[in-house]
Amino acid sequence: MIYKNIGKMIQKAREEAGLSQEELSSRLGYTQAALSNYELGKRRLYLANIEQIANELNKPLNYFLEDTAETAKAGQEKTQDEITSEIDKLLLELPPEERKNILEYIQWRKERLR
């Protein structure tokens, strides 16, 4: 989870710097496959790796970590917005009759909670 989030930040920072995976990996002395695995969160990133990447991309170290810690926390609890949008999405995939049933269920739940 952590590595995936850091990987996304690396990709974002690399793209902002206008570098391809090939260019950044050669500057870092990694193979392109290794950098790709870091960005995908498949390989374990040590602090030393992140520091090296941060230096190369002119970003502070915490650029990669702060967001990660918050995302890690958020990943554990879906936000209300996410739940609502997921319900919307699934609802639209149901036939109209089923949607009516769901509406009745929600009304019933709401009634019970009073």
Binding site: I2, L47, I50, E51, L61, L65, A69
Partner: peptide
């Protein structure tokens, strides 16, 4: 250990 304010990553990696 490590850089300032990187304790969370250090703890998670150690425990993993």
């Amino acid at each position: 250990l490590g850089a300032e304010n990187t304790g969370f990553l250090i703890a998670m990696q150690t425990l993993d």
